[in-house]
Amino acid sequence: MSANLWFALVGAGLIALAAFTFFVQTHLLRRIFAFNIMGSGVFLIMVGMAQHLRQTDPVPQALVLTGIVVAVSATALALLIFRRFYALSAAVTLTQDNDTLGDSYEQEPRQ
């Protein structure tokens, strides 16, 4: 079994595990982790499967670098919003209840 296929298989496995977690878990932090692991899986596939064409293809490397930057920013944003949400509601999950918009929300003072 060639190395690139290994990369792909491991990547696919990671994605499957993480996707499972993402859907099953409701804790928002766990879902952020799951998202990151999914991302890693995709990156593995990206660098792994492209190797067989040439010796080293620079494009996937560049893509993955960019992808990592994007994923880190996404994680940061998610954490930021989660922190504020936690501070206001003391909840770590999203329930239907959070989404019903009260009549007063526009007048509600900010913290």
């Binding site: 919003i81 989404d99 509600e108």
Partner: peptide, 17 residues
């Protein structure tokens, strides 16, 4: 999430995820 109250934060999180 500009208005940063509980409801919009929840909506924003759901959207982001």
């Amino acid at each position: 999430i500009l208005s940063a109250n509980r409801q919009t934060l929840a909506a924003g999180l759901r959207y982001l995820y």
